[in-house]
């Protein structure tokens, strides 16, 4: 079975997935409160002295949202954030950073990640014999 591993890189993944998790949790909290007491985005915007459009864009992921605003939106609906950091268990970090005492070239993280991504890409290369008719249309 051919497979392709879609990988945007560990650093990018760490950031965007955390953001996605925070947004999902924010949306879950809002949905819960909305069904419980019909709170609207306009009411939240009023409490935060901003516009409904801004709140909507932040909740939907169309606008960058800072951790302060996350806490403010949750405050507006009577919730609070809970955050905990923890070390990644040994062996589960795909890119092992060199020891702090090892001199590193500038941008070495990115180059290592790119080399790793290239290797993955080569692994994914495969001969795809596809029906010309299927593709002619799909293109």
């Amino acid at each position: 079975m051919p497979s392709f591993n879609f990988d945007i890189g560990e650093k990018e993944r760490a950031g965007s997935r955390f953001l996605s998790d925070v947004r999902d949790e924010l949306q879950r909290a809002l949905a819960t409160e909305k069904s419980r007491r019909k709170i609207t985005q306009q009411e939240i915007a009023n409490l935060l002295e901003t516009s409904r459009a801004v709140i909507n864009r932040q909740i939907m992921g169309l606008e960058n949202i800072g951790i302060k605003r996350v806490a403010e939106i949750l405050w507006a609906i009577g919730w609070e954030p809970y955050f905990e950091a923890r070390p990644i268990p040994e062996g589960e970090n795909e890119f092992i950073r060199p020891a702090a005492t090892t001199p590193r070239e500038p941008d070495s993280d990115n180059r290592t990640a790119r080399a790793s991504a290239l290797d993955d890409r080569k692994k994914n290369e495969k001969d795809k014999t596809t029906s010309a008719a299927d593709l002619a249309y799909a293109e």
Partner: peptide
Amino acid sequence: DNISTLTRIRIPLKRGEFDEREFHAMPSLV
């Protein structure tokens, strides 16, 4: 899983996350 035109798209998942659904792609999507 056995038709050559399709490619299974996978993505690195964290510990505690597993492949619960399948995403297959035509070549143009790959």
